[in-house]
Design a protein around this nucleic acid. Structure first.
Length: 490
RNA sequence: GGCCCUGUCGUCUAACGGUCAGGACACCGGUCUUUCAAGCCGGCAGCACGGGUUCGACUCCCGUCAGGGCCGCCA
């Protein structure tokens, strides 16, 4: 039997961290078993469901590289089928019409709660004879269709994460299937859809663990084989509070990570390690490794805290995620990284088409050189600006430290002249020219080196100077050196 | 309140009765260097608490405490 898993988010407009991890785990599991990954949007709550809301989810998944094999299906498309299933249950006597009003139910619930118990059903409706029930329905009395949980029900299933689960009828209330207007409710819809889509493994958040008992009963009532279940622990905010967009803002939405310069692979890797570990000490895992090593039974049962500091720009998200992005930035094969950098530079208005054509090699060398100390794609357009544009800023601190020597007024043009003569334009030649001039001038090489760094980039720090100059190119270096003279003190 | 789940460094985690309780991030030192990172080396830091069971418990059992989930004619 081939594995079929589905990710079934509600259309909330954006992909939540928790949802993203659920989707990732579903995807890893499906890929590992060469199965099918299905995307289904749970849009039966008509009020809240718009296509824009769905689009946000799709964008998040696409960015993460979690491609689905079937769908997106809309749960609302199956409404007639859901209703049909409910009616068949009613027909078979496994469900009944519940005529209690919401107000009555609320009172019943309160009374039950006061007694320390749990509300399970409306006694009046549940014990109504078929004839009586038909009569009230014919009269036009509104009713909800409810599944009758057998009094001797004992529901068991083995969860891949939480282990054996068991519950008896006294802890399971009768399941609302259809509203008075005939529209289906969640528990019914998921089960019917999961059956018709032949889902073999249900991987979802732990908040659905309790629903599972009801759903198992529905599978049985509908005569369908049970899928396997794996409930994932939740991802909490610092302080173990519930993580929500409302309370915590953009950190919870995956598009934020895209906007803030994350490489999708890095984020995927970080997410994978929230609740799961390969068993050995590896942290950086390629997608292939993750697919190979992933194991539902190895998932941690405890909720994970997503650790970030609100209001701290340095730690706007979990520091491990930040670190991981840096690792991916420096280790991703350069050809794979280039498109991401291109996107970033385009967004910043710094892109030059030549870098995709005749200048590609130099562009790649530049990126490869500066990425060593970057942690985000955004750094290429920020700190990396001098490498891609003539319009770059001079940091006051850098000028103060490296362009303070008045004699540089003469030395910088001299240096430019020497460098123009360097041929071929390679590391050794450039280094020789600079060190040679320093010696002739009787100054420490560091003086010229640091002055050249600031003159050519406006910055105090950066890659090794000789590599830096090579990558910038002879002409650019010479002109920047000469232009920088204006920054010197008199 | 009821039912259920969970509890190893600040955070993510490994351990499946016998380990000096391991790794990673963060943090703090050192090293390297023309600068800053990275890298490398080192350090700090944890079995929630109390009882059992056992020759021996982070591992098993019970209780306490703490945190979380669910308790809709939402999904």
């Amino acid at each position: 039997m081939t594995v079929r898993v589905r990710f079934a988010p509600s259309p909330t407009g954006y992909l939540h961290m928790g949802g993203a991890r659920t989707a990732l785990f579903c995807w890893l599991f499906a890929r590992q078993h060469r199965g099918t990954f299905i995307l289904r949007i749970e849009d039966t709550d008509a009020e809240r469901s718009t296509w824009e809301m769905t689009q946000g989810i799709l964008d998040g998944l696409a960015w993460l590289g979690l491609d689905w094999d079937e769908g997106p299906y809309l749960q609302s498309e199956g409404i007639p089928l859901h209703r049909e299933a409910a009616l068949s249950l009613l027909e078979k006597g496994l469900a009944y019409r519940c005529f209690a009003t919401p107000e009555q139910l609320e009172i019943q619930r309160h009374q039950e709660q006061a007694k320390g118990g749990q509300w399970r059903f409306d006694p009046f409706s549940r014990h109504l004879s078929r004839a009586e029930s038909d009569r009230l329905a014919a009269e036009g009395r509104p009713f909800v269709v409810r599944f009758r949980v057998p009094d001797d029900a004992r529901v068991r299933f083995v969860d891949h994460v939480y282990g054996e689960q068991e519950r008896t009828a006294k802890d399971i209330e009768d399941i609302a299937l259809l509203r008075p207007d005939g529209t289906p409710l969640y528990n019914l819809s998921v089960v019917v859809d999961d059956i018709r889509m032949r889902i073999t493994h249900i991987i979802r958040g732990q908040d659905h663990l309790i629903n599972t008992f009801k759903q198992v009963l529905l599978y049985q009532g509908l005569g369908a084989p049970l899928p396997e279940f794996a409930h994932l622990p939740l991802i909490l905010a610092p302080g173990k509070a519930k993580l929500s967009k409302r309370a915590h803002g953009e950190v919870v939405a995956v598009t934020t990570y895209k906007q803030r310069g994350f490489l999708p692979g890095a984020f995927r890797n970080f997410l994978a390690l929230l609740g799961w570990a390969p068993g050995d000490d590896r942290e950086i895992l390629s997608t292939e490794e993750m697919i190979q090593l992933f194991d539902l039974d190895a998932i941690n049962r405890a909720n994970a805290v997503f650790n970030f500091t609100e209001g701290d720009p340095e730690n706007w998200t979990d520091s491990k995620a930040l670190w991981m992005n840096g690792v991916y930035l420096t280790r991703t094969p350069i050809d794979e990284l280039l498109p991401h950098v291109e996107r970033t530079l385009k967004d910043a208005g710094l892109w030059d088409e030549a870098w995709a054509g005749p200048e590609r090699e130099r562009f790649a060398a530049t990126v490869d050189l500066i990425r060593q100390r970057y942690h985000s794609l955004l750094d290429f357009a920020g700190r990396g600006r001098p490498y891609f544009s003539e319009d770059y800023a001079f940091e006051p601190e850098a000028v103060e430290k490296n362009l303070a020597e008045p004699r540089l007024r003469a030395w910088l043009p001299m240096l430019a002249e020497r460098l123009v003569a360097v041929d071929p334009w390679v590391h050794e030649g450039v280094e020789q020219a600079i060190r040679g001039l320093a010696e002739e001038l009787g100054v420490k090489a560091g003086v010229l080196i640091n002055a050249a760094r600031t003159a050519c980039t406006g910055q105090k720090v950066g890659p090794g100077l000789f590599e830096l100059l090579v990558v910038l190119g002879r002409d650019r270096v010479a002109s920047r050196l000469r232009r920088a003279v204006s920054r010197l003190p008199l």
